[in-house]
Amino acid sequence: MADTQASLLLRKQLKDLTRRPVEGFSAGLVDDSNIFEWNVTIIGPPDTLYEGGFFNAIMSFPANYPNSPPSVRFTSEMWHPNVYPDGRVCISILHAPGDDPSGYELASERWSPVHTVETILLSIIAMLSSPNDESPANIDAAKQWRDARDEFKKKVSRIVRQSQEAF
């Protein structure tokens, strides 16, 4: 039953997004027969280091979505304090509620079934514009962001160029 609910909800969201695209990203399925794997392209937000980039990512939804969060992994190269070296995105709203039932993340920052593909991707875009170096997933990137901003900028503009070429 949970299975059908998840796929119904995902299909609904996909339909809505195709009908009324949201600025900043585009979304589709990796494989039309599998509603649980999405291919999304996030456009580097204007006035940030990532401006102009086209970053591909894969969203994998669990069978009990929306009660558990999907995972998001960049397939384009990414250099960001909150993205693991293997591309996985680490933001608090993608943390299952069980991970931290009443710990240091505020309730409003954790996963909630109210989140949709749209709200998740908007959160990732917000993450791109303001990295959070308080709990870094990529320690090297976080250090560079804090201590050697110029090198960080250089590295990011390289990956932005790369993403444009690949696009």
Binding site: N67, I93, G98, S102, A107, S108, V114
Partner: peptide, 25 residues
């Protein structure tokens, strides 16, 4: 049914379900 699934997920996650909050973030 959404409430039921929300509560079910929290209960399966352990005693943290006792501090369950409204699904609205």
């Amino acid at each position: 049914s959404c409430w039921r699934a929300y509560a079910h997920t929290a209960i399966c996650d352990g005693p943290g379900c006792l501090s369950l909050r409204c699904p609205n973030p």
